[in-house]
């Protein structure tokens, strides 16, 4: 395990999202959904509680539908490994408004801290670059400070590989009801008439 994994996970996510404004956020199942909720609930956050591997592609669908809005995907390294092909799809489609933050703890933490390929040499930032996605590795506070504005302004697709210690996220449980999460997101984005 990398000795350089010193950034606090929850604090790093809080910093990256503190100026999110009206950007649209999708969080991947498990830890990332806990983190997204833990740093502050928002109607423009769509929490996934399953659909492992799907977070980045949900982000792509939103990004294509809303090209003038910034779309942020918060996902885990385990989930990104399951959806690795979607990095190729996103790299080819090149949505300028999509950014993906991979919270990389080298683990499947949610299911009992099993080691993931990311702890054994697989480099998701290199995979992203090979797919045509701009990628930045963030392991220090200085790198986190530098990437924070770029998360919202750099031309996408962008992947931020956020290296954090090999521990689990602190559990925080947002709403689980799918139709509620769907409708509150759509109401906030599209207005109440979208249900008519």
């Amino acid at each position: 395990m990398s000795a350089s994994r010193t950034l606090d996970r929850r604090a790093s996510v809080a910093q990256l999202l503190r100026h999110r404004g009206e950007s649209l956020l999708v969080s991947g199942l498990g830890g990332p959904t806990s983190d997204a909720y833990g740093v502050g609930d928002h109607p423009l956050t769509f929490y996934l509680w399953g659909a492992m591997g799907g977070a980045a592609m949900v982000g792509l669908g939103i990004a294509l539908a809303q090209p003038t809005r910034r779309v942020i995907v918060l996902t885990g390294d385990g989930e990104m490994l399951m959806g690795m092909g979607s990095l190729a799809t996103i790299g080819v489609k090149k949505p300028a408004n999509l950014a993906i933050v991979v919270i990389d703890n080298g683990l499947y933490a949610e299911t009992g801290l099993q080691e993931a390929h990311t702890a054994r040499g697989v480099d998701l930032a290199a995979v992203a670059r090979a797919c045509g996605v701009t990628a930045e590795v963030v392991e220090t506070q200085a790198q986190l400070d530098a990437v924070e504005p770029r998360l919202y302004s750099a031309p996408g697709p962008l992947l931020v590989n956020l290296k954090v210690p090999s521990v689990a996220s602190i559990l925080e449980l947002p709403a689980r009801d799918g139709p509620y999460l769907r409708s509150r997101f759509r109401t906030a984005l599209l207005g109440p008439d979208c249900h008519l």
Partner: peptide, 14 residues
């Protein structure tokens, strides 16, 4: 990937 993407499309209004 398409199932996840089209879920996003609907969330985004398409």
């Amino acid at each position: 990937e398409g199932v996840a993407m089209l879920a996003g499309a609907f969330l985004g209004g398409q």
